[in-house]
């Protein structure tokens, strides 16, 4: 991480970049916040460790409007989102100096707490250059430890690979963390009976508190004014009546990002109620791969999204009934 800070200071001082977009040390061991650094000494508070899970490419939409270049630290999965935003003319490539930072899998403090660990005072073992296999957690109620893998975010278990798709420079090494089959959960749900499927999603979505965190964090969901906020569709509803509106919101959101979602997992990471929202988007990714050929959104800038493309011999919609 130190190498990253010195490089950032160097670029800031020699004027290549006007500001650095990274993470700032939080006041608890597990809550660093995304932050802009404009001065070299403010970079002393820069941190990059296992808890820096945020995907910074969405901030680049606003940062592209500022004067001068912005240095942005992008993890491998973030670069897919940056490519996708580039395809949609939302970010300006020459306003961004991209440093591809290494990634050994990001942590979710909720998972640590779920193992019963409370009153966390300090955590060691999450540093970028550490071995990252066990976490030593010092709490008010004694010393605890937890395997790095158990605390890892769900998306890191199905990581799409550590190759940065777009960068100016690479700093820090990565470690492959994929140890689960990407569509295992989706297939498990598809195998359920309709009643079970409906019960599963009814239970999950009934927790939704309509806070829009999933929408506001998602790089693909970056409309100036969301269709659920405007009266364009007469659908500006904010009720939480646990019947249909949550389903409508999440299905339509998944539909709008279908073919554009890079499976960066941010929606599931930020959901305060822990709803596995990635199951919606990953279902569309699986369908698109099966029906229209493998397609990875953001693999390279400028690719044509599957829903804005067609082939003469595409499958008929009735295939959903035959597929069982």
């Amino acid at each position: 991480m130190q190498e990253l800070i010195t490089r950032a200071k160097e670029l800031l001082e020699n004027g290549t970049v006007a500001r650095v977009l990274g993470w700032k040390i939080g006041d608890l061991p597990y809550n660093p916040e995304p932050a802009f650094f404009e001065t070299a000494e403010s970079l002393d508070k820069f941190v990059y460790n296992g808890f820096c899970g945020a995907n910074l490419s969405k901030y680049m939409i606003e940062a592209s409007k500022l004067e001068g270049k912005t240095l942005v630290c992008l993890k491998p999965c973030d670069t897919y989102s940056f490519n996708q935003l580039l395809t949609e003319h939302r970010v300006d490539r020459d306003k961004a100096y991209i440093i591809g930072v290494g990634c050994k899998g990001k942590l979710d403090v909720e998972k640590i707490k779920k193992t019963g660990i409370k009153g966390i005072v300090s955590i060691s073992g999450a540093e970028a250059d550490s071995a990252c296999d066990t976490l030593e957690i010092d709490t008010l109620y004694g010393k605890k430890s937890c395997a790095y893998g158990d605390a890892m975010l769900e998306r890191c278990h199905v990581c799409k690979g550590k190759e940065h798709k777009i960068y100016d420079e690479l700093i820090g090494e990565s470690r492959d963390t994929a140890d689960k089959e990407r569509f295992a959960e989706v297939e498990m749900i598809e195998a359920m009976s309709p009643e079970e499927k409906f019960a599963f999603f009814q239970k999950e979505l009934s927790k939704c508190i309509r806070c829009n965190a999933c929408r506001n964090v998602c790089p693909a969901c970056s409309c100036r004014k969301c269709v659920f906020d405007s009266n364009k569709f007469d659908s500006a509803q904010k009720a939480n009546v646990d019947s249909f509106e949550e389903k409508m919101f999440h299905i339509i959101r998944a539909f709008h990002v279908a073919g554009r979602c890079t499976d960066c997992g941010e929606c599931s990471r930020v959901c305060p109620q822990g709803i596995p929202l990635h199951l919606f988007n990953r279902k569309f990714i699986k369908d698109i791969d099966e029906l229209y050929g493998d397609y990875t959104a953001g693999a390279e800038a400028g690719s044509l999204a599957p829903l804005t493309d067609f082939k003469m011999d595409d499958a008929e919609p009735s295939i959903v009934n035959e597929r069982g």
Binding site: T87, E88, H89, R90, S222, C223, R224, K225, S230, K232, L304, A305, T308, D309
Partner: peptide, 15 residues
Amino acid sequence: ADELLCNGCSTCANV
């Protein structure tokens, strides 16, 4: 196109 809402993302031009 409503100019206050348009993201300029070219999705419409593609279709």
